[in-house]
Amino acid sequence: MTKNRTIVKGTGLFYFLFGIVAIATASIMYFAAPLAEGTIEDGTEVAMMYGIILAVIGVFMLVAGIIGLRAAKHDAMLKPFIYVSGLLVVLNLAGMGMTFRGETGGAPIYLNLIFAVYSFVAIVAASRIMNESK
């Protein structure tokens, strides 16, 4: 396995593991939402809503991970992997922009930056694999 295929496989594994963790965290957040009732006004609804959002993100990351793991071995999956990774770069840069504008309550941007750079490196590696195979 070449270096670029190893990068794609590692990125797919990272996405896959992050998706599993996000889904597990979302289920805990959703089902433990009644515990937030006494501390925040409308805390149950807010916690359930964020749990659903995190579950959607987790499923997306899980699918991206499966595509990445398959793209490391099958050249036909490289293009969908590049599209998914490109979407993740755009979404993370948008999240950073929202933080700079003050719309997220001062959330840290380092996670968005790490995800954006990591996804961009995956795009470069997958593009190199596509060029090598031609």
Rank of each mutant, 00 (worst) to 15 (best):
V59K: 12
V59H: 11
I66F: 10
T6F: 08
A33F: 01
E45T: 13
V56K: 05
F60W: 14
I66Q: 08
N4I: 00
E45P: 02
S27H: 01
T6M: 13
I40F: 14
E37T: 02
I23Y: 09
G10D: 09
V21N: 09
F60D: 08
G19I: 02
L13Y: 09
G43Y: 04
F16W: 15
Y50W: 11
K9Y: 13
I28F: 15
G12C: 03
I40W: 13
R5Y: 11
G19Y: 08
I23V: 13
T39F: 15
A26M: 05
V63I: 14
K9R: 15
S27T: 03
V56A: 14
V56D: 05
P34Q: 05
M48N: 09
G38P: 01
K9Q: 15
F14H: 05
I28K: 14
E37L: 00
L35N: 10
A24N: 04
I20A: 12
A22P: 01
A33W: 01
T11G: 15
L17H: 07
K9P: 03
G12S: 04
A36D: 12
F16K: 08
A47R: 06
A24Q: 04
L54H: 06
T11I: 11
V8H: 10
F14G: 07
L35Q: 12
L35F: 12
L35P: 04
F16M: 12
G58T: 03
G51Q: 03
T39H: 11
I52P: 02
V8P: 06
F31M: 09
F18P: 00
Y15D: 14
A22V: 01
G10I: 02
I57L: 10
A24C: 07
L62H: 04
T39Q: 14
T11L: 15
L62A: 06
G51I: 03
L62M: 11
A26H: 07
L13C: 03
T11Y: 13
V8L: 10
I57S: 00
A24I: 07
G38M: 03
M29R: 12
I7D: 06
T44Q: 13
G43V: 01
T6A: 15
S27D: 02
L17K: 06
F18S: 07
L13T: 10
V46D: 11
E37V: 00
I57T: 04
G43E: 06
F31K: 05
F14T: 10
S27I: 04
N4S: 11
V8Y: 09
A55P: 01
G51P: 01
M49V: 01
A24D: 04
L54K: 07
D42R: 08
T11C: 13
L62R: 03
V46Q: 13
A47L: 06
F31A: 05
R5L: 08
A32T: 06
F60N: 07
A33T: 00
T39K: 10
T25G: 15
D42I: 00
F14N: 04
D42E: 10
E45R: 13
M29W: 11
Y50L: 06
G65K: 06
I53D: 13
F16Q: 09
T44M: 10
I52G: 12
T25L: 15
A47C: 05
V46S: 14
M29H: 11
V21I: 15
A64R: 03
T6P: 00
I66G: 08
T11F: 14
G12Y: 02
A33H: 04
Y50I: 00
Y30K: 09
R5C: 06
A33L: 03
I23N: 09
G65T: 02
A36P: 01
E45W: 11
V8E: 10
